[in-house]
Write a protein that binds this DNA or RNA. Sequence first.
DNA 1: CCCCCTTTGAAGTTA
DNA 2: TAACTTCAAAGGGGG
Length: 505
Amino acid sequence: MPQLNGGGGDDLGANDEMISFKDEGEQEEKISENLSAERDLADVKSSLVNESETNQNSSSDSEAERRPPPRSETFRDKTRESLEEAAKRQDGGLFKSPPYPGYPFIMIPDLTSPYLPNGSLSPTARTYLQMKWPLLDVNHGSLQSRQALKDARSPSPAHIVGPFCLEFPGQSDLSLHQFQLSNKVPVVQHPHHVHPLTPLITYSNEHFTPGNPPPHLQGDVDPKTGIPRPPQHPDISPYYPLSPGAVGQIPHPLGWLVPQQGQPVYQGFRHPYPTALTVNASMQSFLSSRFPHHMVPPHHSLHQTGIPHPAIVTPNVKQESSHSDIGLNSSTILYTLHRKHQDSKKEDEKKKQPHIKKPLNAFMLYMKEMRAKVVAECTLKESAAINQILGRRWHALTREEQAKYYELARKERQLHMQLYPGWSARDNYAANQQGKKKKRKRDKQPGEGNEHREYFPNPCLSLPPITDLSAPKKCRARFGLDQQNNWCGPCSPYLLSFCSDTSSL
DNA sequence: CCCCCTTTGAAGTTA
DNA sequence: TAACTTCAAAGGGGG
């Protein structure tokens, strides 16, 4: 598994297990996107086993080169360095081209310094911004950002108000937007609209090709206002493309809160990650920076409009249990009811604590973007299967392509950190242990056969996963091809059934 | 209704 | 410090 190299997630992973997949994907991806899409599916369906040794040989040479370097500590260190560096640059060097010496920053240096010499956004930055904030006209964004930067630099009192700008390093133009918002100097403010930057955000693969909203979304804009219709229409998509120059149409102010469930449509990034830079988020950040998030009043998760921020999941609270201690006075029956109420109240209390989700990692971002595409190409519906494909594709991505997502993820974490300063992943651990039952019961008993369990919901996916979640090494890696008699059941039959070329495994 | 499955990566916990 | 665990998204499947 990719994590083999440490918790840092160096995805170099176990070469012996991954190369063939990566190579296969690599070949496909390199030919062309469309071709890759079709082939990927075809291959996946018919079985990736067709991977040839030729592929292995031809691309394995470049593998190390193409793969992102170890990201575990290195990446974190670099991230840290980057943050520190950014902090140092805050006094003026923000838009200088940062000399990112290596991956992943080297890939997208313009994210920190997203402007080209002529002042326009670099394509990469545009991509990021658009992906991040589909509502944002990145063409204007540069001006806004600059303005924001200007504001941020200005000695105005606003400077003092923004808590994170002062407290958190690594301010990007994005956080400057936050800053600006937090100082109530919205670039665009409308009573019914959240700031256009408001997240937004629903990630979508289309975000990389702005201006081409899916046909089924075309009619979602209110002809009068030019504003996408509110979420009450179950068929509305959270995706609000922003064609260049179409600032007037921006917004679905509540873009990020458009129904996240039961959404038939979503393309790609359905679940708008909190990335949201909302006024409310700023306020929340402000609050959170001073109080543990669980101490912040429940409503802090509400948007200005009273709508919950997508970043914060506040589980539904049963209404019945929220009212009432009325009438619980004397009878035993009532006492019993009272007990029940108390119990449910406790649960409610727990539930009321907003659940701030983890920022998405690079792969998650990739999945969000690509899922719809894969689903569209394939008849498969099961996410587990889709995810297997996505996992392979992920490995098939070029270094540069992956770098894009690592950079996005880095930004996500950065933003998340700014939005929820006090938040820790630990919070969610605890939340789950209390609120839900143990989610994972993957606690495999030693010797249990599931260590090579693979999920083959569909014969067309009867391929070895790139990695095995539970086993440090597969039998192939562990025993080698020449000792297949030592392989466990799940591995051997697999070979017999699906493998036309065992050597390619 | 809730959990599982699957993927990778980040971050937490444990030994 | 290494190894392990949990959780992020997604949605069909199953108990």
